[in-house]
């Protein structure tokens, strides 16, 4: 597969990029820092090429793309398409996003504005750019990391959850609208996963590892699975099933 990943140098994106190259995929990384992107590209090339002669494996390539700068989205995706030189892009993946706790955001409106803009407005703008290109080449998968926090508002993640709820709704909508034209949408909703983003938070039961998420997501990207929403690790589908049906009175009682 030919895969473009925005956010593939860190956390779950890093794990997914590694999983992909180790299974023979070609990866194009988008991210904020040129130096960081280059280091990750070398890491991916080494992992892909351990078993083969030097220089026989295709190189991972990179381009700058910052979710805070929507004016750069088109150029970044142009670079990715140029890299694959006319071959179709099988999937465009977005793992980038920002996180902050409710306490941090409530005392800082500027930070709140930035989080909502990056996680919702600009991610949607990026997806629009990606969607157009996937449709123009006849189809492909748009895989975007939302969150279980968008499924039900909880006290510690009201604003972050709202940004992800908006994103999930958008993904649901474009799946509905463009499915017939060959666009496949995969809305990934990770549960609590131990990454740099969640460092400092106390891991709840069922906390997952980035490698589990990477395995689930790549399997979904390869398969003909008709699902448009992927909970990962899988146990979070059950967990959220329970949380989504909790009556508000119970949520209030357990201070959830």
């Amino acid at each position: 597969m030919n895969i473009v990943i925005l956010g593939g140098t860190k956390g779950m994106g890093r794990a997914l990029a590694r999983r992909c190259v180790e299974h023979g995929d070609r990866v194009f990384l988008l991210g904020r820092s040129e130096v960081d992107l280059q280091r990750s590209a070398v890491d991916l090339d080494l992992r892909a090429g351990l078993g083969s002669a030097p220089d026989s494996t295709p190189r991972s390539c990179v381009a700058r793309c910052d979710l805070e700068q929507p004016e750069g989205f088109a150029a970044a995706l142009d670079a990715a398409q140029a890299h694959f030189a006319g071959a179709a892009i099988d999937a465009i993946v977005v793992t980038a996003g920002v996180f902050a706790t409710q306490d941090e955001l409530e005392s800082d409106p500027a930070r709140t504005e930035r989080l909502l803009r990056v996680n919702f407005t600009n991610t949607v703008l990026f997806c629009e750019e990606a969607r157009k290109r996937l449709l123009a080449q006849g189809g492909g998968t748009l895989c975007v990391f939302s969150s279980v926090a968008g499924d039900r508002a909880r006290k510690p993640v009201v604003l972050y959850g709202a940004s992800k709820a908006g994103l999930s709704a958008y993904l649901d909508g474009i799946d509905h609208k463009f499915h017939g034209q060959g666009l496949r949408v995969l809305c990934v909703r990770p549960g609590f996963v131990k990454t740099g983003m969640t460092a400092g938070l106390k891991p709840p039961p069922f906390a997952g590892e980035p490698t589990q998420v990477a395995r689930d997501v790549r399997r979904a990207l390869c398969g003909r699975d008709p699902r448009t929403v992927l909970y990962t690790p899988w146990i979070w589908q059950l967990v959220m099933g329970v949380i989504a049906t909790l009556p508000r009175a119970v949520m209030r009682r357990i201070n959830f």
């Binding site: 280091r39 890491d43 080494l46 992992r47 351990l50 030097p54 990454t195 460092a199």
Partner: peptide, 14 residues
């Protein structure tokens, strides 16, 4: 400082 997220290969010569 916990270093475990810094886990990239930087160079290898077989």
């Amino acid at each position: 400082a916990n270093t475990t997220l810094a886990d990239r290969l930087l160079a290898f010569d077989a």
